[in-house]
Design a protein around this nucleic acid. Structure first.
Lengths: 136, 136
DNA sequence: TTAATCCTTAGAGTTAACTCGAGGTCAAGC
DNA sequence: GCTTGACCTCGAGTTAACTCTAAGGATTAA
């Protein structure tokens, strides 16, 4: 017999709330989770892995409705393999763009750290007044 | 005389809508933008730079209300230099964490690209059935 | 001078993703 | 048998960040 987990155990493991997990279920992201006759959800190890993939997609900015489309493809069998592959290739491009964006952000933040360090040492922001760049 | 820009010019430049810019103004993010006697906003080059900083902070996930606190500090003068410096140092840590997270995401996405490429070549997902990892 | 194209304001509507409360079920321990 | 605590559903409420509408004023081009 495979070990199963309760919704609160899964919530703790994935750093989500039970509310959020039930919300995901309501939105159709967890059709694979089985139930006791009483209705209580029984999460298998593989369900937790699936939820990690869902979290991964979410962290790329994919809306829940689109994630549901992917989950539906998973239930639909092999003839959706191409769509699923294409989806991940597209996600890869998205994440690459996000990484680039985030690196630019980091550059500006670093610049501002420098800017304020200099100003702080001088005791005034005026130290940057004659500088065409970075005054704000 | 310094060249000024209309709200729609700025919107185009920053890839925002005029609605969004007016919303930011309403939320207090743009106290520095001057007006014609008729009320029309006149954006200076430095205002656009300031908006780029705002966009940068926003892209780190900072909520608009917190950005407003920073903007207020900027108006308050040199005695808020320490706070502003601390804020950027903290943002730097946030962005570093985001980069780490995004790199993990990229790893999983790459793994899934591989997974589906293999499945696609085999014509079936069953190829991964005996594989403890990655079945979904 | 008249129309088009900006701009203004206040405030209502939208969307996504939760977040929670009410009311009920179920299983374990005293 | 009764209490406790964790589970369930349904549906309403919340929040952030827009997004837009309505009503009207200013500016420009033919």
């Amino acid at each position: 017999m495979l070990k199963t987990y309760s919704i609160s155990e899964v919530a703790k493991e994935l750093n989500l709330t039970v509310y959020t997990l039930r919300y995901y279920d309501k939105e159709g992201l967890m059709p694979f989770v089985e139930r006791k006759p009483s209705g209580t959800r029984l999460f298998k190890e593989s369900d937790i892995e699936a939820l990690k993939v869902i979290e991964c997609l979410k962290s790329t900015g994919m809306p829940i409705k689109e994630i549901k489309v992917f989950i539906d493809w998973c239930s639909d069998g092999d003839f959706t393999l191409q769509q699923r592959y294409d989806m991940f290739v597209e996600r890869k491009a998205v994440v690459e763009a996000q990484l680039e964006e985030l690196n630019k952000t980091m550059e500006l933040i670093n610049h501002k750290c420098q800017y304020y360090k200099t100003a702080l040492d001088a005791g005034t922001e005026d130290i940057h007044k004659n500088n065409k760049i970075g005054s704000f």
